[in-house]
């Protein structure tokens, strides 16, 4: 089983990295002959864009009720991601330890925010456009959350075994897989999520920076600076 999981992990990770590399090459392909010359990104514009990204400010402007769920989701996911780094870093850096309490809270907030988002879109706002892909991701995330919570509070897995296995993956020393079924399930869902991650994960922040720059320049297109 350890070998199967390891091969699965490397395959999924390879697809994830190679997929994005190809995507980035596509982004950077030679531009058509007529494009506006690139503009210099100033620090104030960048900082403003950073706030847009970290606070999902554009979503807040468009739909403040949905924003509450989305921001909670993204923040919780980030905290849990950082906390999970303890499985692949040895020794674990201090910020990973510092995430212990926030991660305990985020572990509950994450599924709650997913339910909130789903309910908002389907029941409350009754959106006419529903992305089936997004809902598939939402479902996968929910399953991942629940399996994580079960592993934490109901059917605990052996943490030493898990760390041994995950450290083996990152150091290319394939080891025995932990015996916990819940862990296996959680890990397989993670692999599925890894190859299904949405394209906006890396692209949206770049677009938000460009948008902030464009908005700052608009008043000067037909006016003197």
């Amino acid at each position: 089983m350890g070998l199967v999981l390891s091969v699965g992990f490397y395959t999924c990770f390879l697809f994830f990295v190679a997929g994005y590399l190809v995507r980035m090459v596509t982004w950077a392909q030679q531009a058509p002959p007529r494009v506006l010359p690139g503009k210099t990104l100033t620090l104030p514009v960048f900082l403003n864009a950073l706030v847009d990204i970290l606070l999902l400010r554009r979503l807040l402007r468009a739909n403040d009720v949905l924003w509450l769920g989305e921001w909670t989701f993204h923040a919780s996911l980030l905290i849990l991601f950082l906390r999970h780094l303890r499985y692949v870093l040895e020794p674990s850096p201090p910020f990973v330890y510092a995430m212990d309490i926030p991660a305990r809270v985020a572990a509950w907030l994450l599924p709650a925010s997913l339910i909130y988002i789903g309910a908002m879109k389907l029941v409350i706002e009754k959106k006419t456009y529903i992305s089936s892909y997004n809902f598939m991701l939402l479902g996968l995330m929910m399953v991942s959350c629940v399996s994580g919570l079960v592993m934490k509070y109901s059917l605990p897995a052996d943490m030493v075994d898990i760390k041994h296995f995950t450290m083996g993956l990152v150091t290319f020393h394939m080891g025995i897989s932990p015996e916990s079924i819940t862990f296996l399930f959680h890990f397989i869902i993670f692999l599925v999520l890894l190859v299904s991650l949405p394209t906006h994960m890396f692209a949206a922040p770049l677009t938000m920076i460009e948008a902030r720059q464009r908005e700052d320049e608009l008043p000067y297109l037909l006016h003197e600076k």
């Binding site: 995507r23 982004w27 494009v35 468009a62 959106k127 906006h200 677009t207």
Partner: peptide, 22 residues
């Protein structure tokens, strides 16, 4: 992608399909 600028190629990937624009 031949007619798209690099920024526009990124924009195509950046859409979250949230549907708020509708």
């Amino acid at each position: 992608t031949k007619n798209l600028t690099p920024s526009q190629r990124i924009e195509i990937d950046a859409c979250t399909q949230c549907g708020e624009c509708l």
